[in-house]
Nucleic acid binder design. Sequence first.
RNA 1: GCCGGGGUAGGGUAGCGGUUAUCCUGUGGCCCUGUGGAGGCUACGAUCCGAGUUCGAUUCUCGGUCCCGGCCCCA
Length: 410
Amino acid sequence: MKITKPRGTRDFLPAETTRRRYVENIMREVVKNWGYSEVITPTFESLDLFTLKSGEGIVGELYNFTDKGDREMTLRPELTAPVMRMFVNEMQATPKPLKLFYFENCFRYERPQKGRFREFWQFGVELMGSSKPDSDAEVIALASSMLRATGIKGSLHVGHLGILRHILSSLDNEQQSKIMRFVDKKDDTGLDDYLEEINASVDIRRNILELICLTGEDAVNKARTITGEIPELDTFEELLVLLDAYGIEYEIDFGIARGLDYYTGMVFEIYSESLGAQNQICGGGSYQLIKLFGGGDIPSTGFGLGFDRIMEICKIEPKKQKIIAVIAMETTRIETIRIANKLRDFLPVHIDLMGRNFKSQLSYANTISVDYVVIVGEQEIETGKVTLKDMETGKQALMTIEDVIQKVSQ
RNA sequence: GCCGGGGUAGGGUAGCGGUUAUCCUGUGGCCCUGUGGAGGCUACGAUCCGAGUUCGAUUCUCGGUCCCGGCCCCA
């Protein structure tokens, strides 16, 4: 019986794994240079952690299970909640700002499609302890810098929920949430119908519709004419100044709502073309979750990057490392192992494990495209040297191991 | 949960009621136990699963499953 992999999961073959690790390392380099520290949380958590954050409704999208002690658990569908839980459990007394990052696999029980899998990888950052626009700006700049490092051009949309919330402040919470949903989906007719349904005032209707289509340099000033002087706009303006200082291109977009209630102010999303329906590669914002998990009143800001989508659009290829094969004769196998071991301090080395004859070993070396072969034959052993053959030029020469090391590691 | 398109050796494919299931490639071995890439020979290897129609199904029908794309959702 042939066992297939579970739906929505993938096997990564050596070439693809190498590419993924290469890109991952580029991104790690960037966050490390911004002073963020990596954390790892459990692959599964209590189901409650996620229902608390996102409501009972998400259970349908989770890989949840009851363990042998009758505990309701789930594979993590995302990493913000686990990191917040970890912070509340054991990091509340650490100095602020606290700058963390993670890169892990997550699991969602959803219908697979382009750029969407049941097991997927998220690279994310959480900055805790500051509510200043400086933190928001840093987080956006970091996301954008990570993408740039992988050669991806995304379009960055930045907004602020406070402004829309201000307009909606006379409505009740449920109405606000619903409106935010329509806005987030860019469902203008749905929004219109709903505003009609709840009998919203003409002012509110006009203001919402005007606000969500504001773009361009003048957007903040135009927003001011709608809302009047509100502190959220000042904060947002400060943020934009900082983004300019970072040299980042952005588009103001008050239409980003990001559904959930715990987002407090700045929100941003980065999109990429050529990804089909799932074109968002990064989303983030400032939020207030720690209190929900029983911690203090700690403002946070962060983002999550969809690593799999990044891998789909990023074209960079890892630099090929030089590799070498040591070729043995029937009588020199022992000596070959000694020589291979010496070379392994410097580069990847293959030796024959198939009991192949000389010619087949060479042919195999060619097939796996090694850069050099080292021939260890009886003649070589007598002279205390080996033959180094450059597989590209076909040239070869007798030399000592030390010379080989010098030659191949340059 | 819903809609559309698919599924033939490891990869790429042909056949579309009866074939020894085609070809390319790959992998192992040999030709060739001290020199690779070419060539020759040889071995390995497939009709997604299950029902139905039929004398006979890879081919037709239905169901399932998985893949691809889209809707919903997207923390």
